[in-house]
């Protein structure tokens, strides 16, 4: 097939791809999410040897941290869930957790290590994935249908298959798509090699991130291959301004320091924001756009865009080409969430 990519900015991976953390995670919020994330992580693993150094692919493993006994219950639930599905995981007690991440505060209840989780630098991974596919830069698509796309300048590009992968901006082209932007903040430090070993996520995340009605923060930290530390996370619905919200940033960092007190003295060099494409059921929209023959969707990945990008692409290509897929496609069918 001949493929062309239209990118209205002059930049590859300049949207949520550039804003995201790059955690290549396996997740268990639902069976559908698990199937997609674990399939995608396998695809990333297969690709790892070919990725350029600039993609900064690093299998650092992830550590889900339980602050108390209640969260430890969740550690054991996750352990059962993953073990039953053949994903290698390891429960750490309080002492093992300290040994794995010496800068975590003392007295945390325990944790779950997922050794296969990896991280990457998404903009360079995206540029590499694009390879030699031609890109129409700087051309804004204002309408899409099964016969092609229309650009802002009134010109058209004809194609029998149109894939819309515009993240949280999907509603500009498909107003009925049930996707809402969910703003997030991240901050990166100067280089402190060896300070952090794993991608760390607090299990309090489950309490805060799922509270969709209000702004929330949760401790999330990631070691970059540069020795820098990437710190998150925040979630805000209804925020449209891409500027830094200093109060949210402050809450996010205060939360991080609760878990890792020595972070307080590290030098922060940059902070930024991005918009996740959130769906009501936290499962992405992959497949035919309802009521738009010839148009396919690949959006709604929330915070798992780079994680599930490879699997999303496979499922979509399989469907377009009429092939079978490695995992069932129906859970991601956009039809499920559209209001007609």
């Amino acid at each position: 097939m001949r493929v062309m990519v239209c990118e209205e900015s002059g930049i590859i991976g300049g949207g949520a791809t550039a804003a995201g953390m790059g955690h290549l995670a396996v997740m268990d919020d639902s069976e559908a999410q698990f199937a997609l994330t674990s399939y995608s992580q396998m695809l990333w693993r297969e690709l790892a040897a070919e990725l350029p150094a600039s993609a900064e692919y690093l299998t650092c493993g992830a550590l889900w941290v339980a602050a108390d006994e209640e969260e430890l219950v969740e550690v054991h639930r996750k352990h059962r869930f993953y073990t039953a599905r053949g994903v290698p995981v390891e429960v750490l007690d309080s002492r093992q957790l300290s040994a794995a991440e010496p800068h975590l505060r003392a007295g945390l209840a325990g944790g779950l290590r997922m050794p296969a989780d990896s991280v990457c630098y998404p903009p360079c991974a995206a540029a590499w994935l694009l390879g030699g596919i031609p890109v129409a830069f700087g051309r804004r698509v204002v309408a899409a249908s099964g016969s092609g796309v229309e650009f802002e300048d009134g010109t058209n590009l004809k194609a029998p298959v149109i894939v819309l992968a515009t993240g949280a901006a999907i509603r500009r082209l498909v107003p009925s798509a049930p996707v809402a932007p969910r703003k997030g903040h991240l901050l990166i430090t100067d280089r402190y090699p060896g300070f952090l070993n794993h991608q760390i996520i607090e299990l309090g995340y489950l309490k805060s991130a799922h509270a969709t009605e209000s702004d929330s923060v949760a401790f999330n930290a990631q070691p970059r291959s540069t020795g820098q530390i990437l710190i998150g996370s925040s979630r805000q619905f209804g925020a449209e301004d891409s500027g830094i919200d200093s109060r949210i940033l402050a809450r996010m960092l205060a939360r991080a320091v609760e878990y890792m007190p020595e972070l307080r003295d590290l030098s922060a060099i940059r902070a930024w924001t991005g918009f996740r494409a959130a769906t009501p059921d936290k499962v992405p929209l992959i497949g035919r756009a309802p009521g738009m023959p010839g148009v396919w969707l690949a959006t709604g990945h929330e915070g798992l865009g780079i994680s599930t990008s490879l699997a999303t692409a496979r499922l979509l290509a399989d469907e377009i080409l009429g092939r079978d897929s490695a995992i069932p496609r129906s859970p991601y069918n956009p039809e499920r969430t559209f209001v007609h």
Partner: peptide, 16 residues
């Protein structure tokens, strides 16, 4: 330009 407009300690960014 976004904050921090100069590199700063993380603690500074949440000192109110």
């Amino acid at each position: 330009v976004r904050p921090p407009v100069f590199p700063a300690k993380i603690a500074t960014l949440f000192s109110d």
